[in-house]
Amino acid sequence: KTVHVNGVQYDFDNPEQAERFAKEMAKKAGLQIQFHGDQIKIE
Rank of each mutant, 00 (worst) to 15 (best):
K27Y: 13
K23P: 00
G7V: 00
K23T: 11
T2C: 12
D11T: 13
P15C: 11
I42S: 07
I40S: 05
F35Y: 14
L31D: 04
D38P: 07
Q39Y: 14
H4L: 13
E43K: 05
A18E: 01
R20S: 11
K41Q: 10
A26W: 02
H4E: 08
N14H: 07
Q39C: 15
Y10E: 00
T2K: 03
F35E: 08
N6F: 14
E43A: 07
H36G: 09
G37I: 07
Q9G: 05
G30K: 03
Q9Y: 07
V5D: 01
Q32Y: 06
H4G: 02
G30C: 12
I42E: 05
I42F: 07
F21G: 00
I33V: 12
D11H: 15
I40A: 04
V5H: 08
V8D: 03
P15H: 11
K23Q: 13
M25T: 06
A26P: 00
E43N: 09
F35H: 09
K1W: 15
N6A: 07
K1T: 14
G30S: 06
K1R: 11
Q32C: 14
Q34P: 04
K28S: 08
H36L: 13
N14P: 00
Q32P: 06
A18I: 01
G37S: 08
A22W: 11
N14D: 13
K1Y: 15
L31I: 09
R20F: 10
F35D: 07
E19W: 15
G7M: 02
V3Y: 03
N14V: 04
F35G: 06
N6S: 03
K23G: 03
H36A: 11
E16D: 08
L31Y: 11
D13I: 06
P15Q: 12
I33T: 04
Y10R: 01
F35V: 09
K27H: 14
N14L: 08
V8N: 04
T2S: 09
P15D: 09
K1F: 15
T2D: 01
V3N: 02
D38T: 10
H36W: 13
P15Y: 14
L31G: 10
R20K: 13
K1G: 05
E43S: 08
L31P: 01
E19S: 05
Y10C: 01
D13K: 05
Q39G: 11
G30V: 04
P15E: 12
E19K: 07
H4R: 07
V5Y: 15
G37P: 07
P15T: 10
I33D: 03
E24I: 03
Y10I: 03
H36D: 12
D38C: 13
I33Q: 04
D38N: 10
F12L: 04
G7N: 03
K28H: 12
D13Q: 05
V8F: 05
Q17S: 11
V8M: 08
A18P: 00
Q9D: 05
Q17T: 08
K27V: 11
K23D: 11
I33H: 05
I33W: 03
V5C: 15
H4N: 08
F21D: 03
Y10G: 01
Y10V: 03
I40D: 05
Q9S: 09
E19V: 14
R20W: 10
K41W: 15
K1C: 15
F12V: 00
G30Q: 09
Q39S: 12
A18D: 01
Q9K: 11
G7F: 02
K23A: 11
K27E: 15
H36T: 10
A29W: 15
N14M: 04
H36K: 10
F21S: 00
K27T: 12
F21L: 01
A26S: 06
Q32N: 09
N6K: 03
A22G: 01
L31E: 05
K28I: 14
V8K: 10
I33R: 00
E24Q: 04
H36S: 10
F12G: 01
A26L: 08
Q32K: 10
D11R: 12
K23L: 14
K23N: 10
E19Y: 15
E43T: 10
I42K: 05
K23M: 08
I40M: 07
Q32R: 04
F12H: 00
V3G: 01
Q32V: 12
A22F: 09
A26Y: 05
F12D: 00
K27L: 15
Q39H: 13
P15M: 10
V3S: 01
N6R: 01
E24N: 02
E43R: 03
V3P: 01
K28V: 12
K28T: 10
E24G: 00
P15I: 12
K28A: 12
I33G: 05
Q17R: 02
V8L: 07
H4A: 06
K28D: 08
R20T: 11
Q17C: 13
N6H: 09
K41V: 14
V5E: 00
I33P: 06
E16R: 05
I42Y: 07
Y10P: 00
M25E: 14
K23S: 09
E24D: 07
D13Y: 02
G7R: 01
G7Y: 02
H36I: 13
R20Y: 11
D11I: 14
T2I: 06
T2G: 03
I33F: 04
E16F: 06
M25F: 09
I33S: 05
I42M: 08
K41N: 09
N6M: 10
Q34G: 06
F12Y: 01
H36R: 08
A29Q: 13
Q32L: 12
Y10A: 00
M25D: 02
D13C: 13
E16A: 09
T2Y: 05
G30R: 00
V5M: 12
D38E: 09
V8C: 15
I42A: 06
L31T: 09
N6Y: 08
Y10H: 03
L31S: 09
V5P: 01
G7T: 01
P15V: 12
Q39T: 13
D11Q: 13
I42C: 14
H4F: 15
G37E: 08
Q17L: 09
I33Y: 06
N6L: 12
F35S: 07
V3W: 02
G30I: 03
K27Q: 14
Q34H: 11
A29P: 12
D38S: 09
G30T: 04
A18W: 04
R20E: 14
